[in-house]
Amino acid sequence: MLINKYTVIKGRNIVLVPYREEHVLKYHEWMKSEELQKLTASEPLTLKEEYEMQKSWQKDENKCTFIVLEKDKYEQTGNEIDSMIGDTNLFFATPEDRICAEAEIMIAEQSARGKKYGWEAMLLMFLYAIKTLDVKQFVVKVSFDNTPSINMFQKMGFVELSRSQIFQEVTLSKLVDDNWKIWIELCLGKFEIIDTKSEL
């Protein structure tokens, strides 16, 4: 997360901000949900462990994590915590090799589901990774029973690579090309990648 420590990305309906210490408490509450644990293949952590995880992620050059905010709510209140609805991540094999990234998206707030916020957040993350990190391929691993996510990625042009009966998940992949990049920009319409370091 050193990569995106000072990056904010604004779309039409959502804002992506770096995962910081003040977000941990609400994130921890989300991850008490057995449904989210199952969908994200996550183990429950104590609050202390969650804070330690956030700190380690912040220093990790192989991860890129953003918290997803509901834009209207955030612009009305200015409160990131109240506006949090999920998170999106990229994982790299090594800091030197960012050609391929494993991507994740989670919309944790029930009230924010079914509004295409996950779609927009994921496309913003893809575009950021293509433009800023020069990623050439994205891979996603989705639980067999997470049909909405599988359908979403397939609509984005991902194709199935493999299925793991052991992990009960499907792996899908998308190679980046100019046509796909243009398609993402057309889907997103208005977007902005902001370097907040220059504003400090």
Rank of each mutant, 00 (worst) to 15 (best):
A103S: 14
K26M: 03
R163S: 13
E185K: 09
E80Q: 12
D82R: 04
L161Q: 14
E29N: 12
F191S: 06
T196F: 03
V170W: 00
F144K: 11
L47S: 06
Q54P: 02
R113L: 03
T77I: 07
V135T: 11
I130N: 06
Q168H: 13
A108W: 01
L47N: 08
S198A: 11
K59E: 15
I166R: 06
I193R: 00
S164L: 01
M152L: 15
S56R: 13
E96T: 10
S143R: 15
Q168E: 15
L124F: 08
P148F: 04
L36A: 06
D145C: 09
K116F: 14
K32F: 05
C100K: 14
V142N: 10
E49V: 05
V176G: 00
M106R: 02
K5L: 09
E29K: 14
G118S: 05
E169M: 12
C64M: 13
K190D: 13
E199I: 14
V135C: 03
K73F: 04
L36E: 04
K136L: 12
Y19R: 07
H28K: 09
R12Q: 15
E185G: 05
P95H: 07
I193K: 00
E192T: 04
D145N: 13
Y19W: 10
V8A: 04
K32N: 12
V17F: 03
K190H: 11
I3Y: 08
K10Y: 09
E102W: 10
F191G: 00
N151A: 13
D72Y: 09
S173E: 10
T196E: 12
L69T: 02
T65A: 02
Y27Q: 09
D178Y: 05
A121W: 01
S111K: 15
L161C: 11
H23P: 01
R12N: 15
Q168W: 03
I81K: 12
M152F: 06
N4A: 08
K38G: 00
M152N: 07
R20T: 13
Y74T: 06
G157C: 05
K55H: 12
L161H: 09
I14F: 02
Q165S: 11
M152I: 08
E75D: 08
H23K: 04
L2T: 13
K116Q: 15
F144T: 03
F158W: 00
I150H: 02
